[in-house]
């Protein structure tokens, strides 16, 4: 089978979510780093946006779609339709957090960061995830981890890296972060990924 290719800019941004997933699942892939979207590349993009996931002739854009496709290939989405729905619900929350952070992070000075952390638009999501994890071992509430546990790790890791962690205590999310940080599958990627601030 063709090795998939992910195309994105030399930053963490949106692509870190599918990248972490591929790394964790041990699926080999090529990473095509682009500085800008050339006219030639733009023609291949359905909505003129990256990331792009390509597997032979098959192409998809939109981060959640890429995540779901990879997860389904690896049976990593949950066993029941309820579990899959809960995973999707949490992924939607994670993507909202990402949108908030991408919208603000690189425009903020230290003072604005502090303000963001205290009046955080992402706080309600962190509280929601924390509550789920205090009642269930996994975010999709099944008996096994799914892609969304890993995606929650990427979210916490990213928000921490940006200095935008909302005020409050999130012991379950912190322990989730530690769990995945120590994962041998992710070690190489976590050490070599772009050191960008967004």
């Amino acid at each position: 089978m063709t090795k998939p290719t992910l195309t994105y800019f030399p930053v963490r941004g949106r692509v870190q979510f599918p990248r972490c997933l591929l790394e964790y699942l041990g699926e080999e892939y090529n990473f095509n780093e682009v500085k800008t979207i050339s006219d030639d590349l733009r023609k291949q993009l359905l909505f003129k946006q990256l990331p792009l996931y390509q597997e032979g002739d098959f192409k998809i854009v939109q981060t959640p779609a890429i995540i779901d496709y990879i997860s389904e290939k690896h049976d990593f989405r949950g066993k029941t339709k309820e579990e899959r729905a809960r995973a999707h619900q949490c992924l939607a929350g994670i993507m909202e957090v990402l949108d908030h952070c991408l919208g603000y992070s690189f425009k903020m000075d230290k003072q604005q960061q502090e303000k963001f952390r205290n009046e955080s638009p992402i706080k309600k999501f962190f509280e929601g995830f924390e509550m789920v994890l205090s009642q269930n071992k996994y975010l999709a509430s099944g008996e096994k981890e799914t892609y969304v546990d890993l995606m929650a790790f990427v979210m916490v890791d990213y928000v921490t890296n940006l200095g935008l962690m909302p005020s409050g205590d999130y012991p379950k999310l912190i322990s989730l972060k530690k769990h995945y940080e120590s994962s041998p599958q992710l070690k190489k990627y976590l050490e070599s990924r772009p050191q960008s601030n967004f």
Binding site: I60, R84, H88
Partner: peptide, 28 residues
């Protein structure tokens, strides 16, 4: 979450596509 709700309802009615690639395009 809007899309999670719609996908859940659609899954009950087999309305998400027949193949993994079709389902990916639905998500996209």
């Amino acid at each position: 979450q809007t899309d999670a709700i719609c996908k859940y309802i659609a899954a009950k009615h087999d309305f998400l596509g027949k193949s993994i690639k079709e389902r990916a395009i639905v998500d996209e």
